[in-house]
Simulated assay, not measured.
Amino acid sequence: MNSVRITEIFFSLQGESNTVGIPTVFIRLTGCPLRCGYCDTEYAFTGGQKKSISDIIAEVESFGSRYITVTGGEPLAQPTCLELMTKLLDLGYVVSLETSGALDISGVDSRAVKVMDIKTPSSGELSRNLFSNIRHLNKNDQVKFVIGNDEDYTWSKRILSEYQLADRCEILFSPVMGQQNPTELADKILQDKLPVRFQIQLHKLLWDDARGK
Score class of each variant (00 low, 15 high):
Leu160Trp: 05
Asp109Glu: 08
Gln191His: 12
Arg66Phe: 15
Glu98Val: 04
Lys204Ser: 07
Ser106Trp: 07
Cys81Ile: 05
Ile27Glu: 02
Glu83Asp: 09
Leu172Tyr: 12
Arg111Tyr: 08
Arg5Trp: 06
Ala77Leu: 13
Val60Thr: 01
Lys50Gln: 13
Val108Asn: 04
Glu16Trp: 04
Lys188Ile: 01
Ile9Met: 14
Val60His: 07
Leu130Glu: 08
Leu34His: 00
Thr71Tyr: 08
Ile9Thr: 13
Val115Arg: 12
Glu170Tyr: 13
Leu76Asp: 04
Val94Gln: 04
Met1Asp: 15
Asp209Ser: 14
Gly48Glu: 01
Gln14His: 10
Val143His: 02
Leu97Gly: 03
Ile134Glu: 00
Asn138His: 08
Lys139Met: 10
Thr183Tyr: 11
Leu190Gln: 12
Ser3Tyr: 11
Ser62Glu: 07
Leu190Glu: 09
Asp40Phe: 08
Leu130Phe: 09
Tyr93Cys: 05
Leu190Phe: 07
Pro75Lys: 13
Asn149Phe: 00
Asp209Arg: 08
Gly178His: 02
Arg111Cys: 12
Lys114Asn: 08
Gln164Pro: 02
Ser54His: 14
Ser161Gln: 15
Leu97Phe: 03
Ile159Phe: 08
Cys39His: 07
Leu126Ser: 09
Thr7Leu: 15
Arg28Phe: 00
His203Glu: 02
Asp117Trp: 00
Gly31Phe: 07
